[in-house]
Design a protein around this nucleic acid. Structure first.
Lengths: 189, 189
DNA sequence: CGTCTATTTGAATGTACTCAAAAGCGGTGG
DNA sequence: CCACCGCTTTTGAGTACATTCAAATAGACG
């Protein structure tokens, strides 16, 4: 049985016996992604949900003018996908790229359905996962509508210490919703 | 057995037999809320998650300067609470008020735990509920960072037709994250 | 070492806020 | 039923925040 980080992640909320672990593992597909490689392209159908075993990824939308908006970063032990696309099998609004050489494990829709069917505890796991994701996103919405750019920047750096080493200023700006030029002057204070 | 809308809502995603329905109903507490009354006050501990049987509510944060930021509206058949507070039993960041005379059914934390324990299917129900909530909030974040105020206003009106009759311009402005004055000039076009 | 991209800086412009005042609207009490 | 009150909405002038465009500098990478 492989020694995946995803096991520890899952077992933060539910307990699996060896048989269950084995079955779960049989559904996982490991994928290696080189830096700058896309694991999902905007416009495609998103087939999988990913868990980051190693490295870091970024999900972003590109509009008609080519402007990128970063929706989320995902580091080790994070889950990432274009959830809307994955759930509803619509065209992806997001692209997902590796910020460095990375390794993820992926679950496709059928695998996830089978998992829910065979080990209903996983409903609980994902219930808690989505519950937390919802809380985070709602918090984020509150920040957008109530804080200044400077305050948002501080909170962001604070919430993800060391992130400034992994991602560019430009990417942080595109997550905060401002231009890189303006973020630069904000940092100058 | 009462004829609550919440049954139909739950049965959109899972199926309940009569015994299960009865048990579920036994956990529900009906509450009537007068217009402008608060069902949760910022700073308190949030005890319940609510389903709107009748009427409409609004969840909002008030900052040190007294500025209100509307996090969500909830109409008939919507679920609402301060999820962060409900889950982590921390002080509420949000207040929840009735926009008109309303009727909700509430589930407290113990009831919900008991429900998950007795009828695990509810894990699935809430998994789907939170999954959709997460998708919506992430979409909303994308709108904040990539769209103009005018575009956000259009999408909002479009997504919730008739909402302009139920809530004030000021409340919509506080949801979009702009001042009522500015929203007024945007509408003038 | 040279190229490409990110970051900084600045000037000019546009977007959004503050403050103030007037007009509109709804609810309440006489 | 009307008159008044309080709050919302509109409008405008002045200011602050944020963008665009351009150019210079700094870093990353082959």
């Amino acid at each position: 049985m492989g020694n995946y980080r995803i096991f520890n992640n899952v077992q933060k909320h539910i307990t699996l016996n060896d048989v269950e672990k084995q079955y779960f593992e049989s559904l996982l597909k490991v994928e290696r992604i080189a830096k700058k490689e896309l694991i999902l392209k905007q416009g495609q159908i998103c087939k999988k949900i990913y868990f980051v075993e190693l490295g870091s990824l970024r999900a972003f939308n590109t509009n008609e003018d080519g402007k990128e908006s970063t929706i989320m970063f995902a580091f080790q032990n994070w889950w990432i996908t274009d959830m809307s696309c994955f759930v509803n099998q619509k065209q992806a609004l997001l692209s997902i790229e590796a910020l460095e050489d990375s390794q993820v494990v992926g679950l496709d829709g059928n695998a996830l359905e089978a998992l829910f069917d065979k080990i209903p505890k996983f409903e609980r796991f994902f219930r808690i996962l989505f519950q937390n994701a919802y809380i985070r996103e709602q918090q984020r919405a509150l920040h957008y509508i109530s804080l200044t750019t400077e305050e948002r920047y501080r909170k962001f750096i604070n919430k993800y210490p060391g992130i400034a080493d992994k991602v560019t200023q430009k990417q942080i700006a595109s997550y905060l919703g401002v231009t890189p030029e303006f973020l630069s002057t904000v940092k100058r204070k």
